[in-house]
Amino acid sequence: MTCSVTVNQSGKPFYKLTEYVHRNIEIKKLFSGNDPEFAFRLIVAAYRDKIARFISLFVHNEQECEELSSDVFITLWKNRETWDQIENPDSYLFIIAKNRALNHLRKEKAIKSVDCNTLEIDSFYHTKTSPESIFITNEMAEILDAAIETLPAKTKLAFHLVRENRMKYKEAAEVLGVSVKTIEKQIAFAVSKLKEHIEKFR
């Protein structure tokens, strides 16, 4: 615990620190710092939307998404003693989020285990995809969203993590508990689906 937080705590506006926190390595530094509450605030600011968005893939209710995201951060706080052992903060938080969401579904459906293949994943719950409109129009983006929606549940999850959260295959594999090869195949399949629909569009 000799490493200290290298962020200037006073004076700087919060949003700048948020940008700073986006990089995994810096979060690791924060995690092993000596002011857990300060680190916690930054992490919440950097991750709340990402985590809520990820949970919304599983749970299609705004209020519940918000509550579950809050739970994720409370879990993170309760485990602050072990923060310095976290190897990859990104996958760590998403694993907690996944477990929270699956637990919630289990309770809601009063079943023992959730079968990942039959999960109803809504890839674009309460979202709007805005392309730059150079090569594709908003209309085409909508069609491509719909194309992604036709993929198997596990593939949708992988696509979301790699595309929107810029996760490495290895990190996404860790979060979803599958092999790197599987993620690689899933992403290639998603891209081939996009290609297929773009071809149809013309």
């Binding site: 709007k128 392309p131 594709i136």
Partner: peptide, 11 residues
């Protein structure tokens, strides 16, 4: 362009 497109959420 689709891959890089912003996905905005109001969750």
């Amino acid at each position: 362009e689709y891959w890089d497109a912003e996905v905005n959420t109001s969750l």
